[in-house]
Amino acid sequence: MIQRPIPTLAMLASLLLAAGAAHAQKTPAPVGIAEEAVISGKVVDIDANSKAVLVQGPKGNIVEIVGGDEAKNIGNVRKGDIVTLTRAAAVVAALEPLDSKDTALMEQVERTSRAPEGGKPGVMREITTTITAQITKIDTANRTVTFRGPRETLRTVKVRDPNIDLTKIKQGQMAKIVVREVVAITVKSPNAG
């Protein structure tokens, strides 16, 4: 019987990323840049009644995942299955200069998709954040922008779209920034390709 604290699916992503992000990256990223991370762990125990699964992470840490109503395929999880958390790098999808009188704002939209019935459980969450923020630094060589949003924290994000012209944005200017991030959790049998 599993007897540990019960983190939600969102808390799991944070816990696994915190425990394994340094392990997953070959070189440390500059502070504030969300780089891609892939962390896998092995299922060591399952309680189908409570929809709880214990997963041993890359450093031997054990995390309990408890699925809510969305965990329809929990009965298909077996000891030894591999749980993988993939967090894609946050990237700027749009960047538009604004009037300097604009106020810092943030709006977030999440889309969630789940694995089909009958297979192994899985979930993918795409988060699109639209932020009105002050640009504090532009690095055209590395194609990154650093901005101060409504929470007064600095964040640096990559601009991969070659159609976004960073020369039109100035330090100190307000801008509308659309950032996209994707987090996915999948479960596979150890012998599945």
Rank of each mutant, 00 (worst) to 15 (best):
N73Q: 09
P121K: 04
P121T: 07
E96K: 15
T86S: 11
D139S: 15
V145R: 00
P116W: 07
A115F: 11
T132A: 10
V123W: 05
K101T: 13
T130V: 11
S113V: 14
K79V: 15
L85H: 01
A88K: 04
A115W: 05
Q108E: 13
N73C: 09
A90P: 02
G118N: 12
N73L: 09
E110K: 09
V77W: 01
T132F: 03
L85P: 00
I138G: 00
G119N: 12
E117G: 08
K101Q: 12
Q108T: 15
L95K: 03
K120F: 11
R114P: 06
K101M: 10
P116H: 11
V91H: 02
M106A: 12
T140P: 06
T144Q: 14
K72Q: 10
N142Y: 14
I135V: 13
I131S: 03
Q134I: 05
I82T: 03
M106I: 12
T84L: 08
K137N: 10
G119Y: 04
V83Y: 00
R125C: 15
G122L: 04
R114D: 12
K79R: 14
T103Y: 08
M124V: 09
A141H: 07
T130Q: 12
I74P: 00
I138W: 00
A141E: 09
T128G: 06
L95T: 02
V77D: 00
S113Q: 15
D139T: 10
V83C: 07
E110F: 15
N76A: 10
T130P: 03
G75W: 04
I82W: 03
R87D: 02
R78A: 09
R143C: 08
V77S: 02
R111C: 07
A141R: 13
R78H: 11
R114I: 11
L95S: 03
A90R: 01
A93F: 04
L98A: 06
G75N: 13
K72L: 12
R78D: 13
N142C: 13
P116M: 09
T86L: 06
T86D: 05
G122I: 03
P116D: 09
A89N: 06
E107F: 15
V145F: 01
I74H: 01
T128N: 09
G119E: 10
T86E: 04
V92D: 00
R125Q: 15
T129F: 05
V145T: 07
T144Y: 05
V109L: 13
N142P: 06
A141K: 10
G118W: 13
E110I: 10
K72D: 13
V145M: 02
I135K: 01
R78W: 15
